[in-house]
Amino acid sequence: MAVRKNQADLTATEKRNFVDAVLELKRSGRYDEFISTHNAFIIGDTDEGERTGHRSPSFLPWHRRFLLQFERALQSITPSVTLPYWDWTVDRSPRSSLWADDFLGGDGRSGDGRVTSGPFAFSGGKWPMNVRVDGRTFLRRSLGTGVRELPTRAEVDRVLAMSVYDAAPWNSSSDSFRNHLEGWRGPNLHNRVHVWVGGQMTTGASPNDPVFWLHHCFIDKLWADWQALHPGSGYLPTGDTPDVIDLHDTMKPWNDVTPADLLDHSAFYTYA
């Protein structure tokens, strides 16, 4: 059984294996398929129309499946690799070991935001921006400038306390756990972290920054934590909702998996 660990607890070998597998996926072209898929859903998911990956109840199971696919791709390179998660309520500084040169590399430089150190720096030649929204071909970050503070543990706990998974109109205006975790309402958790990192993480092509996976792995863990807190609360809606993925509807792009199939993460991995 795969065990997903806090990134702060990874050994030097685990960090190196993760980074090397990510770089190999990039070299082979497989990494960029994930960026393209994500960008397509960012563009296609709308509040008044069909919505699957974002701003909808299936935000959480969709990303759970997306991360599983990515993790399996990493494991096809190095079987021992699992996705780590970034608890940004604890590791909330640009000086965190997350941003060291032996892992994700550092903040972008002033001026153009270019990341200049670590395995994903443009100068290393191994991390080109092939799927992008503007002409810049280098990884950028601007830690803590788009918004000053990452969410706090108290803000996370306030959202975890919400007992209703999701609610009509099942979009970015819903008053629900899912929408408060996604960040369109309330203290703003998931969305705010994208803005805090800056660079490609603020765009539809956000998986260009490998921290995307660590951020979403923590969002996924918070869903599991919420389920443990509210064992009587289930995924909603459960049927006949136009434009929205109901409990037993299959999700694009896979078309063979439903939210119901993904509710129990322990079928696939556990969190350390």
Partner: peptide, 21 residues
């Protein structure tokens, strides 16, 4: 909808090599 067609194309390519974006 056209949006579903968009997602369908993403699905078709999700497992394929991205030879020519």
């Amino acid at each position: 909808t056209r949006r579903q067609v968009l997602h369908g194309s993403a699905a078709a390519l999700a497992g394929a090599v991205l030879a020519a974006p």
